[in-house]
Every structure is written in structure tokens, then in C-alpha cells.
Amino acid sequence: MLNSDYVWDMVFYPSGAIEDKFHATGYISSAFLFVAAQRRRNQVGEHTLGTIHTHSAHYKDWRTGSGLRTWLLSPRRYPEALSTRYQLAVTQRKETEPSSSSVFNQNDPWTPTVDFADFINNETIAGKDLVAWVTAAFLHIPHAEDIPNTVTVGNGVGFFLRPYNFFDLDPSINSADSIYFQKDQDAGSY
């Protein structure tokens, strides 16, 4: 994105959960204030309009016999229709589908180089290595506080991957700094 930068965070929790999130910053795309442009822009200054737009990212998370892997895929300032249509899509993992988009898609959005619609083809996923394509997006309505730079607070989005019956019990109890009490121990002595 020409005028946007992103802060990417992956947080690994002792419980086995993973949080993926991103925050947008940078400077807003702006134009001189005129009435006809106010449908798609918001006034940010006395004579200045900021462009209303969407920030989105498509994540590729997959599960194989060796565990969960997470790839962060390209952010999109102006989202491609199909990849943002679904918050979650699950497909078979294929080496021929390394990403859901291409930087070249912006050159011809009507005939994209990589078309995510081709990935969703009603194939069976039973007994296969799976890919979860997760879309995280938010609408950015520029305001005066976005000048000179957009703050990251409030301009972010993400999701959690939480284990479900993956562990026999809460894995955080095995952390080096944890304290575990048996039924017959006096907790007040610690």
C-alpha cells in the first residue's frame, strides 16, 4: 500500500492459543474538499477530505501431521471481492495454491493472475491436509486525528486460533513459572 504501513503481531499464549492481528498506520489519501466527493470521503480538515477505504489481510493457516503452520498473506487496501466475501474458507492444501492473491491482480482485476474463486471447488476435505483461509478486515473512515499519521490504536483487526480437544489438559500448567496445587496441599503456604 503506497501510503499505509502495517504492524503485524502473532501472540502465542501458554494455553496453546495463537492470536494473529494487524494494525494500519501511515498517512491518509486525501483530496481537496468539494461537495460531489463527500459520498466516498470524509472531511478531515477545513478544506480536506480523506478517502474512506478498507484494510484487509488474508491469512493462510494450515494443519498437517506435523502441526499448525501460519503464513501471513498480503494486505489489501482495496479488497478483492471473493477473498473478503468469506471470513473463513477451508480447502485442501495444495502446493499450487501458495497464496490467495498476487500483486499483479491489481493490473487486471477482471482477469486476476491468482483467482481465489478457483480454490473453492467443493472438493472433499475429509482425511486431507487442510488450509483455513481467514480474512481480517476493517473499514477506515479517516478523521482529523489521522493527520499527520494514522495511529494504530483502534485501526486494527485480528483473530484467534484456539485449540479444541487438542491437548489432554491446559498446557500452560507446564510453564516454568507456574504453580500447581494438588488437592491435599495447603495453598496458603506458598
Results as ranks from 00 to 15, higher is better:
N174P: 05
F138S: 02
L49I: 11
G127W: 05
G16P: 14
Y190H: 11
T54R: 00
R40F: 07
D118G: 10
I120M: 07
W62Q: 06
F160K: 10
G158L: 09
A136T: 14
P79M: 03
V11H: 11
Y86T: 02
D170Y: 01
E145S: 09
D118R: 15
H47E: 15
I18W: 06
H23M: 05
A36H: 12
T135W: 04
D9F: 04
H58G: 15
Y59P: 10
T70G: 01
L161T: 13
A24Q: 06
L73T: 09
T96F: 01
A144E: 13
S66I: 04
Y59Q: 13
I52W: 02
I173S: 00
V157H: 07
F116C: 01
V134T: 14
S172Y: 00
Y86G: 01
D146S: 05
E19C: 14
A57G: 14
Y78C: 11
T91A: 01
S189V: 12
Y13D: 08
W71P: 00
P14F: 01
I28H: 08
D9A: 11
A187P: 08
F167P: 13
V157D: 05
V35Y: 15
V134W: 12
V44C: 13
I120G: 03
F119V: 01
A144F: 07
S56E: 09
F159L: 08
N105F: 02
I147M: 13
N122E: 04
P112D: 08
Q106T: 12
T25I: 08
G26V: 02
Y164L: 13
S4W: 01
A89S: 13
A132N: 06
R162T: 14
V157G: 04
R39Q: 05
M1N: 12
W62L: 07
E145H: 04
R41M: 15
A81R: 14
A136I: 11
V153Q: 09
V35P: 15
F159N: 15
S83G: 11
S172T: 00
